[in-house]
Nucleic acid binder design. Structure first.
Length: 113
DNA sequence: TACTTGACATATA
DNA sequence: ATATATGCCAAGT
């Protein structure tokens, strides 16, 4: 245990992502605030990009940007439609702009309440 | 070792 | 509403 502390920051991100309930989505910025750390939103993206196989499965597809859009397009090797399909499979609908209605599907953690 | 990049967000002009 | 600038951290080159 506690083999490496550097990886701890990544794991914190995974824990929050795993807290996202089924059929809900969260934004990078929100996760960054939930961590209550100096972790910036871009770091969350980094963490999700480097998910160790041992930490899977992590519902990374439930993490979208502040506009409710999918940002996985910048990632090479991932299909942009993949995340959209996974979210739609959970009952999340996209508008014509390929954006999620955050007013409805945004995950509101109890800690923030 | 140093610089650049990266699933972003927020503020300012 | 769009464009530009800055913040934040770690990994990649």
């Amino acid at each position: 245990m506690a083999k490496s502390q550097s990886t701890n920051a990544f794991e914190r991100v995974y824990v929050v992502v795993e807290r996202i309930p089924w059929g809900r989505v969260a934004t990078y910025g929100q996760i960054s605030r939930l961590l209550e750390s100096t972790l910036s939103p871009i770091f969350v993206g980094w963490a999700l990009h480097r998910i160790p196989a041992a930490r899977e499965p992590v519902p990374w597809h439930r993490v979208v940007n502040g506009k409710g859009g999918i940002s996985t397009r910048r990632v090479i090797g991932y299909a942009p439609n993949l995340q959209r399909e996974l979210l739609e499979a959970e009952g999340i609908r996209f508008d014509e702009n390929e954006r999620v209605d955050l007013e409805v599907f945004l995950w509101i953690p109890e800690e923030t309440k």
